[in-house]
C-alpha cells in the first residue's frame, strides 16, 4: 500500500479525534457554566448538593485541561498558531473584563457580581477568534 494513503487515513482519523475532542470540550465548558449559574440561582437545595456540584465542576475542569492539552499536541503548526492567537486574545479580554467588572462592583454600578459572566465572555471571545483565524487561513 502506498504510504501516502496510510498518511491520508491517519490524517482523517486525527481529524475525527479532533472533532470529538472539540465537542467534548464545548460541552464541558457549558456544563461548568451551568453548574456555576445553578449555584447562583439557588437550584441546589442542600449544602451537600452544592459541595457535590463544586467537586463535579472541578473534576470536569481538570478533565477539560487534559483534553485541551492533548488537542493542542495533535494540531499542526498553523492550527496551533490560530489557537495561540485566540487564547492570547481571550486572555487579554478576560483580564480587561475582570478588572473593569471588579471596578464596576466596587463603585456600585453592578450589584450582583458573577464570575461566570466573565468566563462566558472569555469563551465567546475564544470561539470568535478561533473562527476568524480559521477563515483567515482558509
Amino acid at each position: 500500500m502506498n504510504p501516502r494513503w496510510n498518511k491520508v487515513a491517519g490524517s482523517r482519523a486525527a481529524r475525527e479525534v479532533r472533532f470529538v475532542l472539540s465537542v467534548g470540550r464545548s460541552r464541558g465548558w457549558g456544563t461548568m457554566v451551568l453548574v456555576d449559574k445553578a449555584g447562583l440561582y439557588g437550584w441546589f437545595s442542600t449544602p451537600e448538593m452544592s459541595m457535590l456540584a463544586v467537586v463535579v465542576n472541578a473534576a470536569i475542569g481538570v478533565g477539560l485541561i487534559r483534553i485541551f492539552v492533548r488537542y493542542l499536541k495533535d494540531l499542526d503548526e498553523l492550527q496551533r498558531k490560530i489557537q495561540l492567537d485566540s487564547l492570547a486574545l481571550a486572555m487579554g479580554v478576560g483580564l480587561v473584563t475582570s478588572f473593569s467588572y471588579s471596578l464596576l462592583v466596587t463603585t456600585g454600578h453592578v450589584v450582583q457580581a458573577d464570575v461566570s459572566d466573565v468566563t462566558l465572555i472569555v469563551i465567546l471571545t475564544y470561539m470568535g477568534a478561533t473562527i476568524l483565524g480559521q477563515v483567515r487561513y482558509r
Binding site: R4, W5, K7, V8, G10, S11, R15, D76, E77, L78, Q79, K81, Q134, R136, Y137, R138
Partner: peptide, 26 residues
C-alpha cells in the same frame, strides 16, 4: 493539496496557507 498535506503530516489548510503565502512554515 490533500495529498501534499498527508505526505507532510499537516492539514490541507496549512498547505493552502503556505501556498498562498499567508503563513511561513517552521
Amino acid at each position: 493539496q490533500a495529498d501534499l498535506a498527508a505526505a507532510l503530516d499537516v492539514s490541507r489548510q496549512t498547505v493552502n496557507a503556505i501556498e498562498k503565502e499567508k503563513f511561513d512554515p517552521s
